[in-house]
Design a protein around this nucleic acid. Structure first.
Lengths: 207, 207
DNA sequence: TAGATTGTTAATCGATTAACAATC
DNA sequence: TAGATTGTTAATCGATTAACAATC
């Protein structure tokens, strides 16, 4: 595909383009220039054009970009034109919060089930999703395709759990535990270290 | 202070240093060289030394860095030597998850209360923290110092709520709503766009 | 066609890495 | 002291911005 090693900073920006473009589309805007979008997003028009041209010429001289087309193209680049099946490991508040995100579906992201060690939590449903006991995980993975595991368990368990999931075929990890997962090279890990984000905030508040 | 415009990429890395150093300390390690730390953290030793030297010479030639001292210094830089009082706006799953984070305290971060529009949710407590009704917010802000508001409400309400909080003196915003808050220059906003993080993951999974 | 705006090259700026003298 | 490792300067690499010819 168009994957001639695009820099990570570019990839990081794509979902943000997506968000602004989707809002524009919702407002009935169907055409936008890099100049207008740059104003809206507070980035340079140059950067927008450079970013998009890593993947191909989606615009038209003298016209700008078609909003719907751009949403489709960026969605395709981000892999949102495919189905991704997710399970959530840990049905605590965070796990349930993520399981409840409604704007995931329609973007190819389907949360299928939650798992928890606490038998008290198993059996219930979260927004219609089943919560299973952790010991059912193994059988579940045998019978269902799981692309991404969302890890919302304590770091003490996360390392081993990730390894186990990897061994059973899961390759995507959305990790909320406070550690850096070490997995083989074909695993894809996206870390969300919330407390590190908060510390950035305190830095800028004190300076 | 040592704030001669340190680049944001450096600030972003500080909490991660913090995490690794704290773990080392817990393991009883009290001294480390940039070389050893670089191996552990998978970054170059050069980068570690450069980063730290933005703030002062915390190491010693021939010896390395004292782990405890470094933790203190980075903590001070990040403002964790002060008290920060937080309130959580929105007592849904996400708000409750953040309110329950135990490793915030001891780092100067004190979550004081949650607020929710749903009267059903008010009155209860989350890990000992009170959940108030939203209409009590104004009075609360008059009687209590609030440094940081954690926004876990839908984006439709977030913009106005942030403005209201700002007008009543709150300057720090940890924003989980899917929009970029626009606030006056002295407000500090840290956005956590979880769905954008997930889209990065899907990108790397499809490429 | 004339005007607008892209796609793309070149210039600038900033961040990372390498190297090594200073020094504990 | 000799060995180790920092602090810091210089070199490299990459990302951003500016500029403009191509073109719709």
């Amino acid at each position: 595909m168009e994957t001639n090693r695009i820099s990570q900073v570019v990839i990081k920006r794509l979902p943000r383009y997506m968000r602004f473009l989707s809002e524009l589309k919702a407002q009935g805007v169907d055409r936008i220039s890099s100049g207008e979008l740059s104003e809206l997003m507070q980035v340079t028009a140059s950067q927008i054009r450079q970013d998009l041209n890593h993947f191909g010429g989606f615009g038209q001289q003298g016209y700008g970009y078609n909003v719907s087309r751009l949403i489709n193209e960026i969605g395709r680049i981000l892999g949102l034109d495919r189905e991704h099946h997710l399970i959530v490991i840990g049905a605590g508040n965070l796990g349930r919060a993520l399981a409840g995100y409604s704007n995931f579906e329609g973007r190819g992201l389907y949360i299928r089930a939650l798992f928890d060690i606490d038998p008290e939590r198993a059996g219930i449903t979260v927004r219609g999703l089943p919560v299973y006991q952790m010991r059912e995980l193994s059988a579940y993975l045998k019978n269902n395709k799981v692309d991404i595991a969302v890890l919302t368990i304590p770091k003490e368990q996360a390392r081993q759990m990730a390894r186990e999931l990897y061994d059973k075929g899961v390759r995507g990890f959305w990790n909320f535990a406070h550690l850096d997962l070490e997995l083989p090279g074909d695993a894809v890990v996206e870390n969300v270290h919330l407390s590190e984000s908060l510390m950035q905030l305190t830095y800028y508040m004190t300076h």
